[in-house]
Design a binder for these strands. Structure first.
Length: 416
DNA sequence: TCTGGGGTCCTAGGACCC
DNA sequence: TCTGGGGTCCTAGGACCC
């Protein structure tokens, strides 16, 4: 049996840990640049705020109801997530961290009654971390997901351990609530009269295969209690790494855009080094405001091969800026740029280049020391000059909470 | 004024090989 | 009249997830 443990309204719950007076009040957390609503407390949901809705369209509701708004604070959420996962590991060493706020636990060998065990997990997370969680248990991951959704509507725990309960759960799950069935497939399925997860399991397997590929077929099997999605405890190296951001305001000056591009390239290099990888492809894209009614939408991108796969700041920034020069056009108001690195491999087996004298040992050392200094003294304390010192391209983050758990100078202050 | 960011997997079709 | 058969690799696009 597998348990899916999932933090309720995770980002909002993280903020509430340090501001308990927000318990019971409507709270939302915004996306980068304070653009969209990406986490909502139950009270905010009840007021009709939707996921990923642009916040400026809801200004009235927010003001009228005194909804508390936070910019997203990923340093805080990431650290809270790590703490939650560590506590979960004490309940099962066999854990798959699936996302920042959820994990699958393999419950093989647990002797205790599973409902009781889940209640114990829930109480411990609440006590150690302060985050409320929902727990769904079943013999496949897809069913555990469904159990989890039902759990959230009940006391936070739900176990599917018989065919009767499974049928009941499937009949009470709308098709769009099934893990692996998104908007497009839901629309298509509803046209064919499939409205619940149960209806979906009654479809002919080959029909599903034909319309939804092997992925859909697996979902069907999983709903019927046949595990086909592997339980994967290994954290694998990423195959693509991206850093992309909208600017705080529209820009057309290449020198300012270059600062953002260089900084994004450094972020990608850092992420590569962290997972001990190198990349041999780097993609840069830049685009104007897709929502603008007066300006034409411009999108340009370019993928560059790096002759010898790398993860140093210098080499990736150089390639990225080179790319920027080639796709940049003057007199366009740009809104966003991003860097994606791919063709990723392990840094221990780098293929050399026959035609270049490429000894980047020194650059590697510089990147390594930069990482050490920045870990200790803060992000970008040491950086390349091209990353710039002005913040013209930076995000808006007007409602940012302190990084309570990772910076000494931002510790929670308690009045004496 | 204002609309996120970061990932994965699968398939079809084209180019190419012998 | 008729125009092989069997592969691989790559890419773009579409679907999904959080």
């Amino acid at each position: 049996m597998y348990a899916l443990v999932d933090g309720n309204n995770f980002y909002v719950s993280c903020e509430r840990v340090f501001k308990p007076m927000l318990e019971g009040k409507p709270v939302v957390v915004l996306s980068n640049n304070d653009g969209c609503i990406i986490s909502r407390s139950n009270e905010a949901k009840a007021l009709g705020l939707k996921m990923a809705e642009p916040v400026f369209k809801k200004k009235e509701i927010i003001e009228k109801n005194n909804i508390v708004v936070f910019s997203s604070n990923y340093t805080l959420y990431g650290d809270m997530s790590n703490r939650m996962m560590k506590t979960l590991q004490t309940f099962s060493p066999d854990i798959e961290v699936y996302s920042i706020d959820e994990a699958f636990l393999n419950l093989k060998g647990i002797q205790t009654n599973l409902t009781e065990y889940a209640k114990q997990i829930k109480a411990t997370i609440q006590k150690n971390i302060g985050i409320p969680v929902g727990i769904g248990i079943a013999n496949t991951k897809t069913l555990a997901k469904i159990a989890n959704k039902i759990a959230k509507k009940q006391n936070g725990v739900f176990v599917i351990d018989s065919e009767q309960i499974r049928d009941w759960a499937l009949k009470n799950t709308p098709i769009e609530g099934v893990w692996g069935i998104g908007r497009q497939y839901s629309k298509m399925l509803m046209k064919s009269g499939v409205n619940t997860a149960f209806d979906f399991t009654q479809l002919d397997a080959s029909w599903v295969r034909g319309k939804m590929s092997v992925v859909g077929q697996r979902t069907r099997d999983e709903l019927l209690g046949q595990p086909c999605i592997a339980f994967d405890t290994i954290i694998r190296a990423k195959k693509n790494i991206a850093t992309t951001r909208a600017f705080g305001k529209k820009l057309s000056d290449i020198s300012i855009i270059a600062e953002a591009v260089a900084t994004h390239a450094v972020r990608c290099a850092e992420k590569l080094r962290k997972q001990k990888s190198v990349a041999s492809l780097i993609t840069i894209f830049i685009h104007s405001d897709p929502f603008s009614e007066n300006e034409k939408y411009i999108y340009k991108s370019l993928t560059i091969t790096i002759s010898k796969a790398s993860n140093t700041n210098h080499e990736l920034v150089k390639a990225a800026l080179n790319g920027l020069k080639r796709i940049y056009q003057p007199n366009i108001l740009y809104k966003k740029t991003g860097i994606i690195v791919s063709e990723i491999s392990s840094e221990s087996y780098v293929q050399g280049n026959l035609f270049e004298e490429n000894n980047n040992a020194q650059l590697k050392e510089i990147s390594k020391i930069t990482d050490l200094l920045n870990t200790r003294f803060g992000k970008d304390k040491v950086k390349l000059a091209v990353q710039g010192v002005n913040k013209d391209w930076k995000l808006r983050q007007e409602k940012l909470s302190p990084r309570y758990t990772t910076r000494w100078d931002e510790l929670l202050k308690v009045k004496g």
